[in-house]
Simulated assay, not measured.
Amino acid sequence: MNREDSRLAMEWHTWLAENLALGVSAEDAQQVLVNAGVEAALAQREVAAAQAHPYVVAARRIGRRYEWLEALSDLYAELHRQSGALTLEKRRGVSPEEFFSRYYFGHRPVVLQGFMEDWPAMRRWSLADFRERFGDVEVEVMTGRDGNPDHASQPDKHRQVMALRDYVHRVETAGESNDFYMVPRNENWKRDGLARLREDIRAPAGIIDPELRPDMTTLLLGPSGTVTPLHHDNMNVLLGQVLGRKQVRLVPSFQRHLVYPRHGTFSAVDAASPDPARFPLYGEATVLEGVVEPGELLFLPVGWWHWVRALDVSATVTFHHFQLPGGNTHLRTPQ
């Protein structure tokens, strides 16, 4: 039966093709149509026609490959659970060798302690210090975030340039807010006026490339209440927490099918308050939770989903040039 001869709306043809490709049975598909008001005999004919369409036949073959990959991901998740890795580890005294073997190559997150004690930033950084030393420097921040639920995936709509002293004033007076935030996409480290600020940090010895060029680090600065929605990065990242605390929730990379991806690297789930009616599969995800304190480094393995909320006025530095012969590992973005 050609679509032109069908009495179903285009949306139902799309729904049938997608769900049959994903393995929904003909009986269940027919019942959904009937429940939506489609006559039973018509529903049966439409489902049969869809099943026989060559595009749907091909899509079902692809769907079975997807099911195998999903089953393999579930198996890996079960092995991960059986290993007891159900909490976000905090470790002191980890050698670079152990970090790379257990966490980087083991694809496991960890909070590292003791690597930031020699940072001048730990003694010096404050909002008053930023205003005094760099107040005249123009920086870019993301503003108007509260008015756009998709602000994280639409950064160009929210860029605003202002003097750092004006931004610091907003942070000081805002209380708890998610409406504005200085994030890595603002690339403020590359501004010459903040060069002395970069001198206040140190590369974690043996883990991060000690050269620390401006393009090797990023800066996050904002008030209490800023939220980074659930998403993943396409490379390994090390976060150094200088000011304030951050609450984090992480989901393993191999549970992508449980977090309802959208816009490629973002999740449709609000990890602060997941809706089990809209996102039931998220309830099956392994969620690691913790608080990153000042002076701690959080390692985020490539592809791991993470949600972050600032509990205080917060300043964070990120590193992504690991001291490895082959450099960082990257996740290829599908075309």
Rank of each mutant, 00 (worst) to 15 (best):
A174C: 10
F322A: 14
P274F: 09
G114C: 12
G84N: 13
G63D: 08
F254Q: 14
T329R: 15
R249I: 02
L197M: 12
V242F: 11
S314H: 01
R159C: 14
Y103T: 14
E46C: 15
E138D: 04
D136V: 10
E70H: 10
P274A: 05
E18I: 08
F319Y: 08
V269T: 13
Q51W: 01
G23N: 01
L197P: 02
D156N: 10
V139L: 15
F115W: 08
S267A: 11
S126E: 11
A50Q: 07
P54E: 08
H13N: 07
A50R: 05
A48R: 04
Q247F: 13
Q44F: 14
M116R: 06
V183P: 00
M122V: 12
V137K: 14
Y167M: 09
F115I: 15
M162F: 00
G290A: 10
D312N: 11
S126K: 05
P276T: 12
G206R: 02
E78S: 07
L324M: 11
Q255L: 11
A50Y: 02
V111T: 05
V32S: 14
R256Y: 03
L297A: 11
E39R: 07
R256C: 08
P261C: 06
R45H: 05
A48T: 09
N328H: 00
L212E: 03
N186R: 12
E132V: 12
G193M: 02
S83Y: 01
T143Q: 07
A195F: 04
P229W: 00
G295S: 10
H53K: 06
M182A: 09
Q335M: 14
F279Y: 03
R245H: 09
N19P: 03
R3S: 09
Q113E: 07
R213L: 14
L297G: 05
A271W: 02
R332Y: 12
E132W: 10
V141A: 01
P109R: 05
M235R: 01
R81E: 07
V171Q: 03
L239T: 06
L42C: 11
D118N: 07
E89T: 12
H231E: 13
V161R: 04
G93C: 15
V259R: 00
R165L: 12
G290N: 13
S177C: 11
D233N: 00
T14Q: 15
V259I: 11
V269G: 05
H80W: 10
V237W: 06
Y76F: 12
L258H: 04
N19M: 15
Y104W: 09
G175K: 10
L298Y: 02
V168W: 08
P229Y: 01
